[in-house]
Design a protein around this nucleic acid. Structure first.
Lengths: 132, 132
DNA sequence: CTCAGTGCAAACTATTTGCAGATTT
DNA sequence: AAATCTGCAAATAGTTTGCACTGAG
């Protein structure tokens, strides 16, 4: 459960961290900007500062609990790292985000890096699309 | 030649625009941040302001002369749009940027979008890698 | 009790914008 | 001359940091 994740990250179990993690884990939405979280927490109750949210998210990212994405449009977007790697389709019409995973592309990326004399460390693939 | 490109974009042929376009066309490097261009222009001679560079790059982007990339690390990176689409490998060791194009991945992306009921508008694929 | 964590305000970075004067056509 | 463009400084947006206080262990 979530409190353990925080502890294993070497962080104290504080209210802001627990609350942020809970939202990330239990919301139907999966992708949040720092501002999104700030609003949600505000609606609930807590007066957690935006700075704290950024600090906590960065710590979570370092701990591997969370992944940071840089989609178009300024704000970074965070999601829980469930270990199952995936890429994203960004619905330009509704702003929705769809996750997908494709082995063909994954493999091809590794090969391409190798063909150029490189070892693939990470990648970012974002499809910008609109409903058909 | 470059001046024509500017005119066709519906823009006046001004010194800043010509100089910026020349750098983009003639440097061995192909990827520049606004700040990079600012420094290069500064070294040459001109006292073109950073704001102008941003304005010109945005206009060039709108005109389809230039492509803007959001790699990791804050600054947007611009490159001339030569019409030949490609993606990028970012060498995390030396900061070098390698271009590649892979039809397998290109096709797969279209299919994936379609499988999810979408029409692919654009995409961003960046491989972060280190020399083997 | 101690040290990590937090809120708030101030600082920063990348980029954009308003405006008066300079350029292009 | 008319309209567009530019430089500069000020404004924004997103994120980070310093510091005195709070709270977890």
């Amino acid at each position: 459960m979530n409190k353990n994740d925080i502890k294993e990250a070497g962080l104290k179990i504080t209210q802001p961290r627990v609350q942020i993690l809970k939202i990330l884990e239990t919301s139907k939405e999966k992708h949040f900007s720092a501002e999104d979280l700030y609003q949600l927490l505000r609606e609930e109750d807590s007066k957690i500062g935006l700075a704290t949210i950024y600090r906590v998210l960065t710590q979570f990212e370092t701990a591997g609990l969370v992944i940071r994405h840089n989609f178009e449009g300024g704000q970074a977007v965070f999601e829980l790292d469930k270990g199952e790697h995936h890429d994203h389709i960004v619905d330009m019409k509704n702003g929705k985000i769809i996750e997908f995973h494709d082995e063909i592309i994954e493999q091809r990326q590794i090969e391409i890096a190798k063909e150029h004399g490189y070892k693939l460390l990470d990648h970012s693939l974002i499809l910008y699309a609109e409903p058909e």
